[in-house]
């Protein structure tokens, strides 16, 4: 009996210890240096980005994680707006596929949008954005779905005939292998011919993140080099 009580006390102790550790090191900014090494951000930028992350992740539930509602709220200042693109972007950020974004997922994904990120990273991300079914190629039906959804979201009106003709012309240009789909190589070539297709893939804000969130210096754990 005494041994049993001793066991329970030990278990409680371990649990309390775990809770204490969690409180001392809230999940999120565990090792800014690792993230800085593996992304285009400096340590200071990672820490400033964490200030943004804390703001967004506490908007609805203050749990140190960003759910889809908080992501939409930050993007559009309303969680009511329906956006196929915002959904796609969230899903691509959510590399653990658990419906929520941790800081690491958030920072790694935003790194692609940094002005200094490699163009190939931006091209690959944009390809994934349009590859709705994640089959490794963009199908005509996926393009149509995106065109129809984005036109509806923006209140633009184009007849089905016009949409079909735009998609026909797009595939004539992009689908150089004539197999009815756009693969990564064809997408790469199309983007080279039309660099404007990547215009939403660069966020100038990321260059000034440390001045936008100067409060990171109060929480900084590491001296930047």
């Amino acid at each position: 009996m005494l041994q049993c009580l001793e066991g329970v006390r030990h278990l409680c102790g371990v649990l309390l210890k775990c809770c204490h550790i969690d409180l001392k090191h809230p999940k999120g900014l565990e090792d800014p240096e690792v993230l800085a090494r593996e992304t285009v951000f400096s340590v200071s930028e990672v820490e400033a980005l964490y200030e943004l992350f804390k703001k967004i992740s506490s908007a609805v539930i203050d749990d140190g994680l960003i759910n889809k509602e908080e992501f939409q709220l930050a993007l559009f200042k309303t969680s009511k707006k329906e956006s196929l693109f915002a959904d796609r972007v969230f899903d691509l950020f959510d590399t653990k596929h658990n419906g929520i974004l941790g800081f690491e997922e958030f920072a790694r994904a935003l790194s692609v949008f940094h002005p200094s990120a490699a163009p190939d990273e931006k091209i690959n991300f944009s390809f994934q954005l349009y590859d709705l079914k994640q089959q490794g190629f963009i199908e005509r039906q996926e393009v149509k779905q995106m065109v129809v959804a984005t036109l509806a979201e923006s209140g633009m009106n184009l007849s089905d005939e016009v949409i079909e003709s735009i998609i026909d012309k797009t595939f004539e240009e992009a689908d150089t292998k004539h197999d009815g789909k756009i693969d990564k190589e064809e997408w790469h070539n199309l983007v080279q011919r039309h660099p404007s297709l990547l215009k939403n893939m660069t966020l100038q804000y990321l260059k000034d993140i440390t001045t936008t969130f100067p409060s990171f210096v109060f929480h900084s754990q590491v001296a930047d080099t």
Binding site: L52, S83, V143, S196
Partner: peptide
């Protein structure tokens, strides 16, 4: 160019123009 009519755009340019895919909202108050 910004004044390109929708008929001259390819589907992806049209999507880019019509969609609200602009993550800068994340940084704005």
């Amino acid at each position: 160019p910004g004044d390109k009519s929708t008929h001259q755009m390819n589907a992806f340019q049209l999507i880019g123009m019509a969609s609200s895919l602009d993550l800068s909202g994340l940084f704005e108050e």
